[in-house]
Amino acid sequence: MSEHHQEHHILSIKTAGTVLGLLLALTALTVAVSRIDLGFMNVAVALTLATTKSLLVITYFMHMKYESRFFRIIVFICFLILAVFIGMTFFDVAYRHGG
């Protein structure tokens, strides 16, 4: 990560436009899918789509594609820790009252 001053990558307007198009399409898809009753799968699908959208935002709009690997690792760690906090709380919540 201790690279020397490198050329800043400039996000092209075409790429930005494509990403925006994808984001809007995924939003439409999220709304459409929510109209179909899939039971608990609805939440899973909605979260998968939201995660895809946020990956697009992070990768292109937030320039993560053009950053060094170190940045990608720490972003991963941040979300990993959040997942751990939520997941481990479920060791309690999901098994309360003797299951």
Binding site: T30, V31, S34, D37, L38, N42, V43, A46, L47, L49, A50, S54
Partner: peptide, 10 residues
């Protein structure tokens, strides 16, 4: 994330 979790929760 807030959008599907509140407006589309099923």
């Amino acid at each position: 994330f807030l959008f599907p979790l509140f407006y589309l929760v099923l």
